[in-house]
């Protein structure tokens, strides 16, 4: 097994009465894409800001590349790249000026590390004399990523890089991250999109400051034990209420063109179809399925609610 490059032990952070991080333990391996997945307000940004030495923890300990985030913050800053969730470059500097600025403060040159950013930067280089404030969202992001990489960091932190961008740009960004991984970088990325978990080597579910589960996407899916069925047919709204009214049904959730139903015991799919037919006169099709990542997260959320 590869060495751990980020080690987090019993880390907590509160803002006033809000416990943003509650006793977090995590270990990130060298060279992996590690996904921190959870909704807004779960603590994702707080954790990333502690790991990038921009925020002090209340209690607990975290090391990045073996260095302590509190004591060795100056060294860590040279070894990590950070792309925050909001665009934080200088809007009144051009693309080229922003990049040169970041290279200079990290005491390097664009030329020295150009190979790292080449694929990304080439896409915006034709516009290098345009001010950053005048770029489209996609271009801003490519510039921000270039600036976060220009000092050749060992670990790249990205805070919700795919939030608010369209599905096509999301696919492109994940392609870029995979290329960076092949160059040897460790990538720590947060996202609210469950379906992006499959792009990561390992993921952690985070909710209300607590880590609910850490595993590979395959491992998370494999450890899901409840019987789960996909139901189709009829009108969603009536159908979902009809399903929930059945005694055998534990939960029913909208899932794309189907409704995912979990039951208290394993049933034959026809049993569910028959019950709905008898109760509501609706014809539905039911098939047993494998849970996906979002089913797993929903199930974990239910466990902590109840």
């Amino acid at each position: 097994m590869k060495n751990s490059i980020i080690q987090i032990e019993q880390l907590s952070k509160s803002f006033g009465e809000v416990r943003a991080l509650d006793n977090i333990n995590l270990s990130v391996r060298e060279g992996e894409i590690f996904g921190l997945i959870g909704p807004d307000g779960a603590g994702k940004t707080t954790l990333i800001r502690i790991l990038t030495t921009l925020l002090l923890p209340d209690t607990g300990k975290a090391t990045v590349t073996g260095r302590d985030v509190v004591r060795d913050y100056k060294e860590i800053r040279k070894l990590v790249g950070y792309m925050p969730g909001v665009f934080s470059l200088y809007e009144d500097l051009t693309i080229a000026e922003n990049l040169k600025f970041f290279a200079t403060i990290f005491q390097t040159t664009i030329k020295e590390n150009y190979h790292l950013i080449k694929d990304i930067y080439q896409q915006i280089e034709p516009f290098k004399d345009r001010r950053a404030g005048q770029l489209s969202g996609g271009m801003k992001q490519k510039l921000a990523l270039s600036c976060a990489l220009i000092h050749k960091p060992e670990v790249l932190f990205l805070d919700e890089p795919t939030t608010g961008i369209d599905a096509v740009s999301r696919v492109e960004l994940w392609d870029m991250l995979k290329k960076l991984k092949r160059m040897g970088l460790t990538i720590f990325v947060s996202t609210p999109y469950m379906n992006e978990a499959s792009m990561c080597d390992r993921v952690a579910f985070i909710q209300k400051g607590e880590i609910l589960e850490v595993d590979s996407p395959e491992g998370i899916v494999a450890s899901y034990e409840e019987p789960i069925y996909a139901v189709e047919g009829g009108r969603f709204y009536q159908l979902i209420h009809a399903l929930r009214a059945l005694e055998m049904v534990k939960a029913a959730h909208l899932f794309g063109e189907t409704i995912h139903v979990t039951t208290y015991r394993r049933i034959a799919p026809e049993e569910l179809a028959r019950a709905i037919k008898e109760r509501e006169g609706m014809d539905i099709s039911v098939r047993e399925i494998e849970a996906n990542i979002e089913d797993c997260f929903i199930s974990k959320l239910h466990q902590i609610i109840h």
Partner: peptide, 17 residues
């Protein structure tokens, strides 16, 4: 945007209603 998967679905049920 950014809401948890359960709340996101509850929101959609409000839309259906």
């Amino acid at each position: 945007s950014g809401v948890d998967p359960i709340t996101r679905r509850q929101f959609w049920e409000m839309i259906y209603k």
